Computed example of a mutant assay.
Amino acid sequence: MTDVSDIVTDSITPVADTGVSRREEHFAWIDVRGLDDDLRDAVMQAAIHQRIDGIVSDDLMLLSDLPPTIRRVLAIGADTATDEVTEHTVDVILIDAAASAATPPAVSTEWGTQLVVSDARTLHHACDAVRAVPWTVLTFTDPTKIPLEIVIAAAENSGGRTITVVNDITDAEIVKLVLEHGSDGLLLSPSSADDVVTLARVVAHRDEPVSLVELTVTGVEHIGMGDRACIDTCSLLETDEGCLIGSFASGMFLSCSETHPLPYMPTRPFRWNAGAVHSYVLVPDNRTRYVSELRAGQPILAVRSDGTAREVRIGRVKIERRPLLSITATAPNGATVNVITQDDWHVRLLGPGGTVNNVTELKAGDRLLGCVPVESRHVGLPITEFCDER
């Protein structure tokens, strides 16, 4: 029997520094320790089906029955027998750093440590560990995310990976985004198999690029007064970043953020002067919403002129009566698309290469950027059905 214990990180050879930024991919581990048999079995089946990266258990036999598609993580304490542990039965040996005095087992399997961060001393220990240990599982006792931010910064460009224990799915979504790239991994003890499915979506979520096309302007018309909306976000936007907006679900224009100089007022680099309140706007998960429905805190999709996209949150929507301008264009597939904007020089739409076009200077033949979805929409969701928009 090999006893395992507290790891003195000063005596450990640091993980190799790759010299490159850490991976942006996130992964999830499921902790099945302490779950009753029925729940554990359901959770493990869900984890395998959802391609969760790893399962953590203190039962060697339980892990040895898992398929090779999932990482087998054996959590051990000071009195755990490791005679039967090999690289063929588990993939990672996780040592409890609160146990008493020893070293990692003498097997070629990768190993890691579990740490509880509760004060300055344990935070310092965690910062040492993430630079020296291949896998570091962290439990934070305080609700603030500042200790996690410090540990993530300490791990920057090291070869080690951090796995943060999360309390629930909401906590997982927050931890994933701490310091922008968040903890590498999330460890959850699920209360149901549904938690596993949701956690898999949290770690896998990425904003897919939007396929943009060139739209050719065919007409510009002053149409009088109406209600238009400004969308103020909680993010600073790039000079070629906009939201996709239009009168029809069959085609939307790439509006321009207010990041470019204005003659009589400062720039508003968080804002789109979006369009009339009836307009569709593209939000994450390939959904649309009416501009008039948008509220503070909701997500919206910010799209750059090369099609790359990210989710940003709405801080405020301002609806005001203004003169309006109707802009009609033709898409490459022959579809007619339209957007109604405020009738003012400072409102802009983006064109090929990120060119900035003041709406009051547009004329027939000008080229703009937009997208032309192939589906119709019903309550914002794509649906294959006949729909004639005019």
Rank of each mutant, 00 (worst) to 15 (best):
M1V: 11
T2K: 14
D6K: 14
V8W: 05
T9V: 09
P14C: 10
A16F: 15
D17Y: 08
D17N: 02
T18E: 11
V20Q: 15
R23F: 09
E25D: 15
H26T: 06
D31V: 10
V32Q: 07
R33L: 12
G34S: 04
D36C: 12
D38P: 03
I48Y: 01
D53T: 15
V56H: 09
L63C: 00
S64Q: 06
D65Q: 12
P67E: 04
P67F: 09
R71D: 05
R72G: 05
D79E: 12
T82Y: 03
D83E: 04
V85H: 14
E87M: 14
S100T: 13
A102H: 14
T103Y: 08
T103D: 04
A106L: 13
T109H: 08
G112I: 07
Q114Y: 14
L115P: 14
A120N: 12
R121C: 11
T122P: 05
H125E: 15
A126Q: 00
D128G: 06
V130W: 02
A132L: 01
A132W: 07
L138H: 10
F140Q: 04
D142T: 13
L148P: 05
E149L: 08
I150S: 07
V151H: 01
A153C: 06
E156P: 00
E156I: 07
T162Y: 11
V165G: 08
V165P: 00
N167Q: 01
N167L: 13
E173I: 04
I174C: 02
S183A: 10
D184N: 01
L187I: 02
S189K: 14
S191L: 13
V196H: 04
V196G: 05
V202S: 08
R206I: 01
L212D: 08
V213A: 07
T216D: 11
V217Q: 04
G219W: 00
E221Q: 01
G226D: 11
G226L: 10
R228L: 03
C230R: 04
L237F: 06
L237A: 01
G242A: 01
S247D: 03
S250F: 13
S257G: 15
S257M: 12
H260F: 07
P266T: 01
P269I: 06
P269C: 06
R271A: 15
W272Y: 12
V277W: 03
H278C: 14
S279V: 08
T288N: 10
Y290Q: 15
Y290D: 15
V291K: 03
A296H: 12
R310K: 02
E311S: 11
V312H: 02
R313W: 13
R313D: 11
K318S: 09
L325Y: 11
N333P: 07
A335G: 10
T336Q: 12
V337E: 08
N338M: 14
N338L: 09
N338G: 02
D343N: 09
D344H: 12
L349N: 02
G351W: 09
G354W: 01
V359C: 00
C371H: 06
V374I: 12
V374A: 14
R377I: 13
R377M: 15
L381Q: 11
F386R: 13
